[in-house]
Design a protein around this nucleic acid. Sequence first.
DNA 1: GTCTATAGACTGATAGAC
DNA 2: GTCTATCAGTCTATAGAC
Lengths: 191, 191
Amino acid sequence: MDTRISLLDSAERAVRQRGFDGFSYADLSKEIGIRKASIHYHFATKADLGFALIERYAERFFATLADIRNSGGSAAEQLRSYIQIYRDALAEGEQVCLCVALSAGRDSLSTEVLDQLNRFHAESIAWLTEVFERAAQDGSVSGCALPIEDASAALALVEGAQLLARARKDVSLFNQGVAALIARLATHPVH
Amino acid sequence: MDTRISLLDSAERAVRQRGFDGFSYADLSKEIGIRKASIHYHFATKADLGFALIERYAERFFATLADIRNSGGSAAEQLRSYIQIYRDALAEGEQVCLCVALSAGRDSLSTEVLDQLNRFHAESIAWLTEVFERAAQDGSVSGCALPIEDASAALALVEGAQLLARARKDVSLFNQGVAALIARLATHPVH
DNA sequence: GTCTATAGACTGATAGAC
DNA sequence: GTCTATCAGTCTATAGAC
């Protein structure tokens, strides 16, 4: 097995459960069975580890979004898929998405990590804006305003709904939070 | 001056800027000019401090919500006031609301703090549900679904929008996130 | 690449004088 | 109520052997 990947996997789970300040090299050490000092061979500093985490995360995430876009479904179908990603990320209410975990953490994340975080938000809004622009044409989403405003609201909504669900360790709170948005989505192909 | 109150003020600012794990008794010590050990006289453990923080916060918050309810404005006006509380709490994008800060922090907050946090969410949704029920009657909010779903969405939205704004230290991202909701609010008295 | 050993700083918390 | 002094534990990080 690749130790570096095991470390990233373990660290990602830890950040999403307990925050960036909520786990240590000692935790990773125990979990994957390697000494603390050896971790520094793979990630010289914890900031480096943080950067690698969000870099890998963004790559995976936007690959998934590209797949959804290319699937050719209606805007409503694509939004449903988008929401599902955030619901899955909750993992029974134990975790939040990596970006929610980092957004809310210490404000002394390294500048590089913060930049990646803002890039993640910007690209998410750009992707969602395209979806809502398509919605204005295919009519599969009701009650639309300006695409960029709908997009920003959708991102804020899924991230906020994760926060609520995690506090109570209960996915149904996430579902309740996104229910009004889902109710706006057409359930049948529009044409 | 009351030392206990100074400590609470200082700690609240710290939590909202850096998270519960992001500040220490040493930080408070420097800020208010008292020795670390003396803080333990007022709050025996950090968990006790956390509990006092959210207790005071919830009290203040729900007193404000009660004022808004009693002001007798339309549902739209009351929602605008509600959103304004969250915008104000951002303080130039440097801070988030205490509950956002705690929701996203370590999952080993004491059970008591977690209970208070969930009580806060539940009461917020209850207050907002009443507002959306009134909206169904006074017609001052367009595009409504089920009151409880609109309420949950509104809470998730303002909390999520704070997350986005704070990551970029830019309140305009908050405004962009809530713009679509604000667009649904009638700007003139409905009757 | 992984190990042992350790540095140096910081953490929350306690004992006991004033 | 606030102080000095100190504790045991944790943290990230480094040096150097294997």
